[in-house]
C-alpha cells in the first residue's frame, strides 16, 4: 500500500503522511484528471484497470481500495 499512498499523495497534491483509508476525497481536487492519473497508478501498482465512472464516485480512499480488491478478485 505504501507506494500507492505516495502516488495518491502526488496526484492529490498533499503530503503522503496525510493519506489513509479514511481520507475524504470529496474535500480534495478529486477531479477527472485525478481520476485519470489514479487509473494509471492502480494499473502500475496492482495490474488492474479500474472503471473511470466508479472511481469518480469514490468518496474515501477506502472506496478506491475496495474497487481494487474487487477487480483483483475477478
Amino acid at each position: 500500500m505504501e507506494a500507492f499512498y505516495v502516488g495518491l499523495a502526488e496526484i492529490l497534491e498533499i503530503e503522503a503522511s496525510k493519506v489513509s483509508s479514511e481520507l475524504n476525497l470529496t474535500e480534495l481536487a478529486w477531479d477527472s484528471l485525478a481520476v485519470i492519473s489514479t487509473i494509471a497508478l492502480v494499473d502500475d501498482q496492482f495490474s488492474v484497470m479500474l472503471d473511470g465512472k466508479a472511481l469518480a464516485q469514490c468518496q474515501r480512499v477506502a472506496d478506491i481500495e475496495a474497487l481494487i480488491a474487487k477487480e483483483k478478485a475477478r
Binding site: D31, S32, L33, I36, I39, D43, D51, G52, K53, A56
Partner: peptide, 26 residues
C-alpha cells in the same frame, strides 16, 4: 457544466479522459 466544473455544449469536443486512459493502457 460537468462534475469537474468543465463547461461544454454538444457542438464542442467531448473527451471522457478516464475512458481514454483505460483504453490506451489496455
Amino acid at each position: 457544466a460537468d462534475s469537474s466544473g468543465n463547461v461544454r455544449t454538444d457542438d464542442n469536443l467531448f473527451m471522457d479522459g478516464p475512458a481514454i486512459m483505460t483504453f490506451t493502457l489496455a
